[in-house]
Design a protein around this nucleic acid. Structure first.
Lengths: 173, 173
DNA sequence: CTAAATCTCTTAGTGACTAAGATATATATC
DNA sequence: GATATATATCTTAGTCACTAAGAGATTTAG
């Protein structure tokens, strides 16, 4: 096999592996929501709140891609479950900040323990330098996927007949 | 900073980076479903069909975690959209295989082009050996998350008071 | 002070989902 | 071979999260 072919095969294998693991990650999230007894989007919002801290309802809508109306429902449910609190911004009284109730973060956090333990065990098999490589890749991947998402959204606003033809790779099977 | 602390910080940073990129991956998928004009689960099933080839309705339910009733709906919609075909198994006439209509794979596949191009560009910055490391990690990660998912599901069948207390890491913030 | 903009919430309607059971086919037991 | 049990998909009724549109409250611009 030529050097070039070997690399193409490697890239394809990597893509498939990442798709598989990412799909399983989604399933893990669904299972967490299930066990925690909350809806999927509710958990996603908890996750965002955990990563970003106290954010407005509008920002949640922006990040999740849901309408503000849907977010009202999400926050209602989370508030009723005692997981978050609404806090009106005193500077701009239109805004509503959503904040995680401290103890709640742990209640939800415990369901990520099996995952964290699994990842930790796996990471033990890698040197610091290797982990830094993985970190770099994850960061670049994030930026790449973010940009790709925007590019794709751009397609939505372009009428189909005006869309630039995308160059297709040949598909397997 | 001690060697140990540096590593712990690295691990945490890696975890956060992976969560972020994985969340963005989910959003990319939602956008694809949106642009393609199909439901999220429908796209997920197309993905599975693409990875696993021709599978039964029951297997789709198993892999997605949906009920068989929901899968009936998914397949109905996908069939109506001309993306898949139902094929009765002649050996066991209870079974229904779901197969992707060949051209349809490309129709959907094109929406992954922005993502693939982004990933390819990123991968160009890595040597074969580095990509092999990433592949190994992705594969191990998949297995780890799969196992963690099962562990978590196990919790569901255990009454809460009998659940083994999970050791909690201290949470940020 | 008024008009426009911004932010969240409300309402009505839609659609995908679950639970339970119906239907059809296959396998095991007598 | 007939009967019972198991397996695989589909159907039905009801639920719940979502969107679209617009209302209400507050801020900013003219």
């Amino acid at each position: 096999m030529s050097r070039k072919k070997a690399r193409a095969a490697l890239l394809q294998e990597l893509e498939e592996a990442m798709r598989r693991s990412s799909a399983q990650g989604v399933l893990y999230g669904q299972t967490v929501a299930n066990v925690a007894g909350i809806a999927n989007s509710d958990l996603e919002c908890m996750d965002i709140l955990y990563l970003e801290g106290r954010v407005t309802a509008g920002r949640l809508a922006e990040v999740t891609g849901l309408t503000t109306g849907a977010i009202t429902g999400v926050v209602d449910r989370l508030e009723k479950a005692g997981l978050v609190r609404r806090e009106r911004d005193e500077k701009d009284r239109r805004k509503v900040f959503i904040a995680v109730v401290p103890d709640a973060a742990m209640k939800i956090g415990q369901f990520y323990v099996p995952m964290q333990q699994a990842m930790e065990k796996i990471c033990n098999g890698y040197s610091d330098e290797e982990l830094r490589l993985l970190l770099r890749f994850a960061n670049e991947g994030y930026k790449g996927v973010l940009a790709a998402t925007e590019a794709l959204k751009g397609l939505l606003d372009t009428p189909p007949e005006k869309r630039p033809a995308l160059k297709l790779k040949k598909l397997r099977r």
